[in-house]
Design a protein around this nucleic acid. Structure first.
Length: 562
DNA sequence: GCCGTTTTCGGCCCGACTGTTTTCAGTCG
């Protein structure tokens, strides 16, 4: 059973309690546990197998007992009791935005059996006769529409570029003191839903008006005094919030989130006498509002460090910030080379010389050219070409690399005697993704054990918005990497961002060496590096464990290159 | 049902918006 399946189950139970009028804190406890399980890096089932369920935040003694029963028997008697009397369709309706437990139950009780059926029965007037208000039904229809075109999350770089476009437009306005992105975009989450933006200004109305006239806007969805939403021609929705400069820090903090970071932060603040909201900080004793023009003012007031937005996921950053022990996470400026790129020798679109020019313009000291090991590739000739290049140009070192497939039977696609002639070998899985967890783990470990392999690329094989990564026992993979001193990649390609941030965090904790690479197939893609760095930052990675922050003379000795 | 530099018992984040059961419940971020 996967983490997201368990999370969905727990959310159903929370909804069932809500329908039956249960204790709201108990309901919140189930939801908190669901969130926590969904975001944890390891498999919950593995935690269960090791008897460490209660180390999962939000899982206490009761839930641990239920989960134990779940993993042993596939069901939980208490859960089955809890959902008794609630029609099954109720839980489908919960997937519709705007429909919560109470409404879902009311719809199901009216005899509606599915979302498609719901749509029909609204249009036929059946539900209106059952006592639902007209506007409520219109909203449900809109919710169904949204549910259908759901998954229109977009990749981080697209969201980023979209936001930059609007922000630059807004910043040109003299009334705009400051403009920023918010939410999952500011936290650099791998995929983003809506683009949320904020502006500090004393003239909110003027800013809103200017915003709604953005040239790329297709239509204005809503525009109030302080907030507005537009839909761009690209289909992306952009929300804007405007606050006067004196409380801008509170606004920025509030809408950057995440939800669990904010809950934890406000709980802590209450404990020391402050109530937080997007409008400022209220001192409970005096009742007066303290203004926080910047986020630093706000976190300073709470006597803690300001966590970088990438860390604000409610996974220990508040505790660390209070002890003034936040990690110093990596920045893009520290990257000194790219260890995974392709040229026309395999499926890249640029020549060796063109790729190297691109790397030089980024100020890199070295660049690994790691074409795919197509069996018909003229390995010798390619090696010779790179050697010639290094001989003629001394301003950047080109590493003679190769990316080799790990076959379904755990062998490498190319014999060792060819691998041996290269300076840097990347091994990666490109086929047979559906093998069982044990087999995938064995494939990865067998590649790690090969003495010629230096790095495992895009370790989980996920393609964002397309397919999940394959399952592997990551603890074992990390262990093997440490034992054989091998590198795991953080692939910066927009639809990969792989290792995922939560696994980066476990890998860092396990002491695994990492490298952040673009996997460029075109010279322009070398500039995607910051997205890979953002994944490392979200994984609490410092400069230290990232191999390609090292200067050439150090990398050289790590990779055992002469 | 969880959790502990207020607490192993008694607390548990904050505010906006919407519809409609006109004083609040439901949902969301």
């Amino acid at each position: 059973m996967t983490n997201s399946q368990v999370a969905e189950l727990l959310r159903s139970i929370a909804a069932a309690y809500a329908i039956k009028g249960g204790n709201r804190f108990q309901i919140a406890a189930y939801e908190t546990a669901a969130d926590s399980i969904e975001h944890m890096s390891g498999s919950l089932q593995d935690f269960w197998a090791q008897g460490t369920l209660d180390s999962v935040p939000g899982v206490g003694s009761h839930l641990a007992t239920y989960l134990d029963e779940l993993f042993q028997t596939g069901k939980v008697r208490h859960f089955e009791e809890t959902v008794k009397g609630i029609p099954e369709a109720t839980f489908d309706f919960l997937k519709i935005p705007g429909v919560g437990p109470k409404t879902a139950y009311k719809i199901a009780e009216a005899g509606v059996i599915s979302i498609a059926d719901l749509e029909k029965r609204i249009q036929s007037g059946y539900l209106e006769k059952k006592g639902f208000g007209k506007k409520t039904l219109q909203n449900i229809l809109r919710g169904i529409e949204e549910f259908r075109r759901k998954s229109d999350r977009i990749l981080l770089p697209l969201a980023w570029e979209t936001a930059e476009g609007v922000l630059n437009y807004l910043r040109a306005m003299p009334e705009v003191k400051q403009a920023d992105s918010l939410g999952s975009l500011r936290r650099m989450v791998a995929t983003v839903g809506d683009v949320d933006l904020s502006v500090a200004s004393k003239e909110p109305k003027k800013v809103i008006d200017f915003f709604t006239r953005y040239p790329e806007a297709a239509r204005v969805i809503e525009a109030g005094d302080k907030t507005a939403t537009i839909a761009l021609k690209s289909g992306i929705r952009v929300d804007l919030m405007v606050q006067p400069p004196e409380h801008y820090g509170s606004l920025l903090q509030h809408f950057t989130g995440s939800k669990s970071h904010n809950i934890a932060l406000r709980t802590y603040a209450l404990g020391i006498g402050y109530s937080l909201s997007e409008y400022g900080v209220k001192e409970e004793k005096s009742g007066k509002t303290i203004s926080c023009p910047t986020e630093n003012d706000l976190y300073d007031l709470l006597k803690m460090q300001t966590p970088p937005p990438e860390l604000r996921e409610g996974t220990g950053e508040i505790e660390a910030a209070l002890k003034l022990q936040l990690p110093r996470i990596i920045t893009t400026g520290k990257i000194k080379g790219d260890l995974h790129t392709h040229t026309v020798w395999s499926d890249g679109q640029n020549t060796l010389a063109e790729m190297v020019e691109g790397a030089k313009s980024l100020g890199y000291e070295y660049l690994a050219i790691t074409d795919h090991s197509y069996p018909n590739l003229d390995f010798e000739k390619r090696i010779f070409q790179i050697e010639q290049y290094n001989y003629s140009k001394r301003d950047i070192r080109v590493i003679i690399g190769l990316e080799v497939n790990i076959s379904a039977d755990s062998t490498l696609q190319i014999p060792d005697k060819i691998l041996q002639k290269h300076e840097f070998i990347i091994a990666s899985i490109h086929t047979s993704f559906r093998q069982p967890k044990e087999q995938i783990t064995a494939r990865l470990i067998s590649a790690i054990e090969n003495p010629y392999v230096d790095m495992i690329a895009h370790p989980t094989g996920r393609l964002l918005l397309e397919r999940e990564g394959y399952e592997a026992d990551w603890e074992k993979v990390f262990e093997a990497c440490v034992k054989h001193d091998k590198i795991l990649e953080i692939n910066a390609f927009p639809n990969r961002l792989d290792l995922p941030d939560n696994l980066v965090r476990s890998a860092v904790a396990a002491g695994v060496k990492l490298a952040i690479n673009t996997d460029s197939h075109h010279v322009s893609q070398l500039s995607l590096m910051p997205y890979g760095v953002s994944v490392a930052r979200r994984g609490w990675a410092g400069e230290k464990g990232i191999v390609n922050t090292l200067p050439w003379n150090k990398v050289k000795s790590i990779l055992k290159i002469n």
